[in-house]
Amino acid sequence: MKDKILGTLYGQAIGDALGMPSELWNRNKINNFFGKITTFLDGPYENEVAKNFTKGQFTDDTAQALIIIDALNKNHFEPSKKIIADALIEWANATNAFENNILGPSSKAALTAIKRGEDPHCYTKNALTNGAAMRIAPIGTLFSKDQKLELINYVKGISETTHTSDVAIAGASMIAYAVTLAVEDKHWEEIIEGVLDIHEIAINEGAQTFSASISERLKLAVQFANHFENGEAYSRWLYDVIGCGTSLTESVPTALAIAYFCKDPHECAIFCANIGGDTDTIGAMATAISGAKYGYSNFNKLWIETIDKHNNVNLDQYATTLEKNKML
């Protein structure tokens, strides 16, 4: 179990860090500037959101995932909106995230309102960006296949600090449940079926929006994945048709489809880093799922060493904490 949990954590960190240099650039710009990203790189000065990061550093996606675990650990693994909000604000203040364009728009608006003593609900109910989904993957390791409702409620309790919309709860639940199934080593078709099933329940748990359907986009992406043998062609198709932007309805189905298509987390991370758009977040979500299925012991040890060297965290300790608090 711990090998699978570590695979999730390192998968998230690797996908995040590999996708950091190209974050929010389009495909042509990535290709012209990098050629093809195949390893960890410094954030280029030309990229406003990545220029302060060095090679192997993960971004707010993984940082917030670990903050969530710390916040849960402070409250016996019961989600507390106040504790989570306080932890996220403390981290944001320490990293100048409010000023340095690190926070996503939904999280920034909600946390700013909380700092001012205001009710953030007017922001959280309309949150359509992927902040809830990008940080949720490790939570999937706490649950088993038959705990769908428990997982959704837990994800909702964690996410409501910044995201309470229908697509936010559904998208985050899909990513978490994909990890749950991957940890249990379910085959890829069953993982896709499972996340489609959980979407139908979770989409009713948040404030209604007029968003496109995550599940229908995922169905289309998986259908077309089976027609592509060439990764570059499928990457272009996903970018053009499903989308790689910061919205949940683009990035979540794209991340799930990439994990399904690539399977191997190393290929998955490279695929995500070069696809364009929200590369670090898509990479964090997709590679966490692949890593959960693949397991830590099968990772490239040089990549593991790079993550350990350039980030001041002990992911083994986080894996131990998650393993101890698995919801049986």
Score class of each variant (00 low, 15 high):
Glu216Asp: 10
Asp280Trp: 12
Arg135Phe: 07
Val252Cys: 06
Ile307Glu: 04
Ile169Arg: 01
Tyr177Thr: 07
Leu220Glu: 15
Lys4Tyr: 15
Glu200Phe: 13
Ser159Glu: 05
Lys36Cys: 03
Thr180His: 08
Ile191Ala: 03
Pro138Leu: 08
Leu142His: 00
Lys74Arg: 11
Ala286Thr: 11
Thr141Met: 01
Tyr154Asn: 04
Ile37Met: 06
Thr279His: 03
Ala176His: 02
Gln147Met: 05
Thr180Cys: 08
Val167Asp: 14
Lys145Phe: 08
Gly206Tyr: 03
Thr320Leu: 01
Met20Tyr: 06
Arg236Tyr: 14
Cys122Trp: 12
Thr321Pro: 00
Thr281Ser: 15
Phe228His: 07
Gly171Phe: 10
Gly283Leu: 07
Val252Ala: 02
Gly104Met: 00
Ile37Ser: 02
Ser290Lys: 01
Ile289Leu: 13
Glu90Pro: 13
Asp185Ser: 12
His121Ile: 11
Gly277Val: 09
Ile14Cys: 02
Thr161Tyr: 06
Met1Pro: 14
Leu111Asn: 04
His187Asn: 15
Arg116Pro: 14
Asn101Ala: 04
Thr209Ile: 11
Leu88Lys: 01
Gly56Leu: 10
Ala273Tyr: 04
Ile102His: 01
Leu24Glu: 02
Asn325Asp: 02
Ile175Gly: 00
Gly171Lys: 08
Asn298Arg: 13
Ala288Gly: 14
Asp61Gly: 01
Lys324Val: 00
Thr249Cys: 10
Leu111Phe: 09
Glu216Thr: 13
Pro105Tyr: 02
Gly171Ile: 11
Arg236Asp: 13
Lys293Val: 06
Asn314Arg: 06
Gly117Ser: 10
Leu9His: 00
Glu189Val: 15
Thr246Asp: 02
Tyr45Pro: 12
Ala172Val: 12
Ile270Val: 15
Gly171Pro: 15
Ser247Ile: 01
Thr164Ile: 13
Ile69Tyr: 06
Asn130Tyr: 12
Val167Ser: 15
Ile192Gly: 03
Glu48Trp: 15
Phe98Glu: 03
Ala50Ile: 08
Tyr154His: 09
Gly43Val: 01
Ala292Leu: 11
Tyr318Trp: 10
Ile89Val: 05
Asp119Trp: 14
Leu24Gly: 04
Leu72Ala: 05
Ala178Gly: 01
Asn300Trp: 10
Ala225Gln: 07
Asn96Ala: 11
Ala233Met: 10
Ser213Tyr: 08
Leu151Pro: 14
Leu196Glu: 05
Asn93Lys: 10
Val179Leu: 04
Ile175Glu: 05
Gly15Thr: 05
Glu200Thr: 12
Trp237Asp: 03
Leu6His: 10
Thr39Gln: 04
Leu315Ile: 08
Thr164Met: 10
Lys301Met: 05
Leu220Pro: 09
Ala259Thr: 13
